[in-house]
Design a protein around this nucleic acid. Structure first.
Lengths: 211, 211
DNA sequence: TAGAAACGTGAGCGTTCCTCACATTTGCAA
DNA sequence: TTGCAAATGTGAGGAACGCTCACGTTTCTA
């Protein structure tokens, strides 16, 4: 149980400025993602990543200060995919009912994302155990929530600022928690949990804000 | 990020049979809990635990086959506290409304447990990242759910078996997920998330089963 | 009181993360 | 083109930590 939990800059130690090194960094991340999906981040050695990317250990450490930095970089990329997923689904929502339906779709697609990008399972599993990843995650959830809040206002929900902010946070926290829990379950059980959550979340939204 | 994820017996390598060694094992666990609460399980070295307990490394490994076994043993103890908490609150429930209220109390007390036993925060955080801990956790959630299902039947809820089982699992999964998420937040924000969840869960229960 | 079983010890082995002194390649000004 | 500086690349080896094992000590039992 070694975690790269120390206070560590999430940023690469050095930004690659030449074409050659930028390609190397991409290759490193691609290999790392594949290996993590295949074996889990704990079982993947830095030397495995270096070998797989056709790069020396020294090169690897030139761009990533430690093993955690590789994982954090991947986590940030996957987070971005998640944000795009949420925003894509909610951008066209025009009514409260539409939002309730959109929430259900988000749950499904968010869950689907973990199946499309196998490394996300391991990385998100590791998230709660690692301070730096938790911070990345918290920031991401806030971004989700901020977007939901905008949508809530757009469909005519009123209320003082902090109340809406709290509610949006709650919904997105629960959504992320639920999905992250679901990926630890066998698929059929996961579906039941997610379906239950979808009904609950939509019902709660309408109960709270329907005129 | 080293996890003790391998398939490993959760049981001690050797059961202490003499008084002396039973006391040592208790001392080891007490020290481990304190150190983990203080520094987090990753930062705690096996040699730290041994030193703190006034015991040699060899002794430590005589009773715990690996570092993960220490943590799993603690996790199982804390799980038991959680089960007792849930059962204590729900044992006297006599009606659906009473159950809805009890659920709210469970959320608060479950959250309070993480504050009373500081090591639980770290250990539960690590749970998602570790296969063996996940299994312990899943089993625990099922125990919670089984109890809830009994209570549901007791207050007159009817339905075919698998449907109730699914619902009970959902409620308990969500409860655990929510609380575990809440402990990563500052207290005031955590309270808001939990309050929102309490309302949502109670409302969902009544909407689903109220005659 | 002796022998067996349980218990206790810590030097050191193996693995893995990561550093650092040095080599190579690239970009660019003269 | 050439030559120098900056950027990039290398891998042997240092350091940390989990864990083992051969041997010493205490407790139990008859």
């Amino acid at each position: 149980m070694t975690t790269m939990t120390q206070a560590m800059p999430s940023q690469p130690r050095k930004l690659p400025s030449q074409q050659r090194s930028r390609e190397r960094v991409e290759r490193i991340l691609a290999v790392a993602g594949d290996l993590i999906a295949e074996r889990g981040s704990d079982a993947v050695k830095m030397s495995d990543i270096a070998d797989g990317a056709g790069v020396s250990i020294g090169s690897l450490y030139q761009y990533f200060p430690d093993k955690g930095a590789v994982i954090r970089t991947l986590a940030e990329r996957y987070n971005q995919i998640g944000r795009e997923c949420v925003e894509r689904i909610m951008v066209d929502v025009a009514s409260l009912d539409g939002l309730a339906e959109a929430l259900k779709v988000v749950v499904d697609e968010y869950y689907g994302m973990f199946q499309d990008y196998p490394a996300t399972r391991d990385i998100w599993s590791a998230t709660l155990a690692d301070k730096a990843l938790r911070d990345i995650d918290a920031e991401d959830t806030r971004a989700h929530a901020a977007f939901l809040e905008k949508v809530l206002r757009k469909v005519g929900v009123e209320g003082d600022g902090t109340e809406l902010t709290s509610y949006a946070l709650l919904v997105m926290y629960l959504l992320c928690a639920t999905v992250r829990l679901a990926i630890t379950l066998p698929d059929d059980e996961a579906r039941r949990v997610l379906d239950g959550y979808k009904v609950m979340a939509a019902r709660d939204l309408l109960a709270k804000f329907a005129a």
